[in-house]
Design a protein around this nucleic acid. Sequence first.
DNA 1: ACATAGACCTGTTGGC
DNA 2: TGCCAACAGGTCTATG
Length: 295
Amino acid sequence: MPELPEVEIVRRGLAPAMEGAAFSAVTLNRADLRFPFEPRFAERLRGQNVARLTRRAKYIVAEADSGLCLAMHLGMTGRFTIERHSDGAGITPGSFYYEHAADTRHDHVVFAMSNGEVIRYNDPRRFGYMTLFDAGDMAEHALFRGLGIEPLSDALTPDYLAARAAGKTQALKAFLLDQRIIAGLGNIYVCEALFRAGLPPDAAAGALGIGKRGTAAAARLCAAIKGVLEDALLAGGSSIRDYRHANGDGGHFQEKFDVYGRGGEPCHNDCGALIVRKAQQGRSTFFCPRCQARI
DNA sequence: ACATAGACCTGTTGGC
DNA sequence: TGCCAACAGGTCTATG
């Protein structure tokens, strides 16, 4: 489900409920998500006070005063909802994705916080996962060790793209989806960024930075990636399919998609072409055959 | 190093 | 309406 903007919006929503509060009770309704929960997962969290909630790539990380860290990945269908103990039914402005209150079949993890907030993790497909580690071990942790740069940081530059793409015959789309290069992009924002940059998804990544056209392409791509992520954040992320919002604000970037999910519809550049959908790396790629014809 | 396919899961949608 | 195939925001593994 979520790519960088959605994960960041979820983090911002969870922060008021988690930061400065301790885990009063942690309930696991099953033994695993994508991976088994580690032994004593709930016991180790209980009583830990959350100092801050951060994000790295598509992970939300709750760091406790003790240094114990809880990493949470939403997979494809992971959602957090927040409700208060006191009034029960209330969904606070913090919660992002929310389905039917009655559908608790896939509520796999419940955090009861010391401030009265109850945070539920719901994930029908269970591609998400949670794991614990010590803050000092984060850099070498298998989940984080190989991650690429944050696209919204100053580390993403046209030169970085050109350097990492150098010599690669791999398709631009696969290059951008590789979390070891840039961490946080997924299928939607890669498609959207390539459209904004006017670059073909199946062109060789290695062409970036080569010659005048390649140099210009790297610059456009860099700006497009940052631009589309910033616009998505401002819109509160994208909510597609049956996902709905708890509070109505945010989550409207899907209305601004130029290509994703628009197969057969006219290009927003009014070039006269229709958006094409095709499979690439086993996933759907959407692009304008005219505006994204060549590097 | 790369591409491809399959795996993990459940739910929704579209075609017949 | 029913059934079935295809597809879904992610990533990991095996295989060529």
